[in-house]
């Protein structure tokens, strides 16, 4: 499928990657940098800390969704963006880390007692923290050396937790708002669809067919 279209011109494909990957990292983090700039220059509206938290959390969720959409996109016959998935996932993690940093530092003023109480007592904060703690080992193992050390299968097993993190992230968003406004519902719906796609194995047949027709290709896990 799409793999076949890129393989005849490996040099050209390589050239594109070397541009697109940094573009994902730098371009991906640009909205966050911009938000911090607006925050420091007092242009984030009446409640700037809340806005900053919201923007960073939202981008974390968006990149998480983008990373999770890579496989369904490929299985449904779209382009194969597998080689960019690590970048998408890491950008999501950076945003989650910044989101947490703003909460701990600006929102709670480094009041560790209050933060500890919040994490234990407020389900939406417990859930958000849990999502971050899941993303942490995934980010740490998002490099070739760790894939080798863990072995492809174990690594893949570990990284399936990203679905749990995304579900918790969407839930965290739903629980922080009053009533049921549309935005968090839409994000929760997208994450639910991605989860469903994975759980029901939609598109697996297509993958099996693709594999059968190209026996020389290694399975996804070993490709990175």
């Amino acid at each position: 499928m799409s793999e076949a279209s890129t393989s005849p011109a490996p040099q050209r494909a390589f050239a594109w990657q070397s541009v697109i990957r940094p573009a994902i990292y730098w371009g991906g983090l640009a909205p966050g940098a911009w938000a911090f700039y607006l925050g420091f220059s007092d242009q984030l509206g009446a409640d700037p800390i809340k806005s900053l938290e919201h923007i960073l959390g939202l981008w974390a969720l968006r990149f998480l969704i983008a990373a999770l959409a890579v496989t369904p996109l490929r299985r449904l016959g779209g382009p194969n963006l597998l080689r960019y998935r690590r970048a998408l996932g890491l950008v999501a993690f950076f945003y989650a880390a910044l989101h947490l940093l703003v909460y701990v530092w600006l929102d709670q003023g480094l009041d560790l007692a209050a933060i500890g109480k919040d994490i234990l007592k407020r389900p939406y904060i417990t859930i958000g923290m849990l999502a971050f703690l899941i993303l942490l080992p995934l980010a740490v193992t998002s490099n070739n050396a760790m894939i080798k050390r863990l072995g492809g299968a174990a690594w893949q097993q570990l990284h399936r937790w990203v679905y749990v993190a995304a579900a918790l992230g969407a839930l965290h968003f739903l629980m922080v708002v009053k009533s049921w406004p549309p935005q968090p519902l839409i994000y929760a719906g997208i994450v639910a669809a991605l989860l469903l796609f994975r759980l029901t194995g939609i598109g697996k047949k297509a993958r099996a067919r693709a594999r059968a027709s190209m026996p020389t290709l290694a399975p996804d896990g070993a490709k990175r």
């Binding site: 009446a46 700037p48 600006l106 629980m175 922080v176």
Partner: peptide, 21 residues
């Protein structure tokens, strides 16, 4: 407290940008 968040403190709008306590 609100079941989902604390009501012990508040942020005064306009109270000094992102470093407001």
């Amino acid at each position: 407290d609100h079941p989902r968040w604390s009501q012990a403190s508040e942020r005064r709008i306009g109270d000094g940008g992102i470093f407001a306590k």
